[in-house]
Design a protein around this nucleic acid. Structure first.
Lengths: 245, 245
DNA sequence: CGTCGTATTGACGGAGATCAAGGGCAGTGG
DNA sequence: CCACTGCCCTTGATCTCCGTCAATACGACG
């Protein structure tokens, strides 16, 4: 009774490989739209009401001081927020893209279950992230982040080799999420690109061209050459950019 | 409505406020006792039953490989666990001291609220820890850990200058919790001791002698001299050890 | 007293932070 | 159309904190 099927059973293995909320409830006409990079104050959300991110991207974060923030989680389409999360956990929320929140209407009991499952999901992800930040190196973190984001934002998560998705996070956002610096994230991504694991599409588009390799890196099964040392050949194969998707 | 006082900082007693009919374990055990350093498998906990740590210390962790684990949270007296946490979050639990778990019996509704509040607490702590590990240096993490543990394990949390509590975690445990190494933790503690912020009591006893300074360090308001550089004078004041409590 | 596990301390190297200098691109205005 | 500006990204050079390896000390226990 406590384990709802809504929380699909993806094996987290070590972290970010996270379970997913795939809920396909009836679309609710009531939804609110927010510009990119707007702060979402707790009182923008009605108390006791659940909201689903139907498009866009939401970041939950702790702001330490003027210059330091820790992004706690990234919510893509399908993820759920409510006021309680923002208030009780004393974190803030900001859109990283034009974002739409749908009110979720359902029977009270179903809502309770949904809320509980969501709590579970959040906690599960937080623990996974904790493990990653506590124990893993920069390349592993970046690889895992890309995989997580691809699952959250890829329109259709096929297992194809090449998979594009909108990367709404800037290098700086990624850094704040992963406990790294902007420069380190950039170096990791550059190396992945040079090694043919990813390609940068147009606009916010990021393309994963070798998912398996990224998975191995994320799991620490594959060592990445130091991202600092050499910056030699551009890449074996001459595709620096792949169109579409 | 969701925030129940039972979870507040206060230590919810140690089992005496329950009916005293501690009959045989087999029939209806009101509490279960575990040795130190025993793994607590999920099926040791009855599904749907909440347990309160009434004495001892429980660590939740992810085991990555043979040699690497990340401790996710430390549960002291008053904290709550249930099977769902262990199962759904795919983490393991280990006692770090002789530990007693009490079954919590209450009306179904009250239990639900308690469980929800506990989820909140766990998530809140996970986010806090995440922020700490992602953004702060070794000294800040160790200082924060000591303060957290003192709150969880100090028998009476007065605001007195000197406060002793049982440190059930080894240096290695602390390291696994804080995303550091055993050696770094040891160096931080040694420096705190030499600077008169803490003292090591007997056995597992740790004494905080300057809580305010630790708080400042934990918040990053106070810079700590490199824990690696000098190991000169033993300490200004010649008390390397303070007797109990 | 020897042994074993934990803690301390030192010496050294490296992953990532920090500082700094461009490079690409969109928006704006001449 | 082009210069200008601002922002993000990339890349390089250097620094530093912490991890790693290693030697020793400290207790507990038989």
């Amino acid at each position: 009774m406590l384990i709802s099927p809504a929380l699909g059973g993806a094996r987290p293995a070590t972290g970010f490989d996270l379970p997913f909320l795939s809920l396909g409830r009836a679309a609710c006409p009531l939804s609110e739209h927010f510009e990119a990079y707007t702060n979402l104050p707790a009182d923008a959300l009605q108390d006791g009401q659940l909201y689903r991110v139907s498009e866009g991207c939401l970041a939950l974060y702790h702001q330490l001081d003027r210059a330091r923030r820790q992004i706690l989680d990234i919510l893509g389409p399908g993820r759920i927020v409510d006021r309680a999360i923002l208030e009780r956990l004393r974190c803030e929320a900001m859109t990283l893209a034009p974002t739409r929140l749908e009110r979720i209407d359902d029977a009270p009991l179903a809502l309770k279950i949904l809320a509980a499952d969501n709590q579970d999901l959040m906690l599960s992800r937080a623990f996974g992230h904790l493990t990653r930040i506590g124990k893993q190196g920069a390349s592993e973190r970046v690889a895992a982040a890309l995989l997580d984001l691809s699952k959250q934002f890829a329109p259709n998560a096929t297992q194809e080799a090449s998979l594009g998705f909108p990367l709404h996070l800037s290098r700086s956002d990624l850094a704040d999420w992963l406990g790294l610096t902007l420069e380190t994230v950039s170096r990791c991504l550059s190396r992945f690109k040079r090694d043919g694991l990813v390609a940068f599409g147009k606009a916010p588009q990021m393309i994963i061209t070798d998912r398996r390799a990224l998975q191995e890196i994320a799991r620490g099964e594959r060592t990445v050459e130091s991202i600092y040392k050499p910056m030699g050949e551009p890449a074996p194969k001459g595709l620096s950019s792949v169109r579409g998707l």
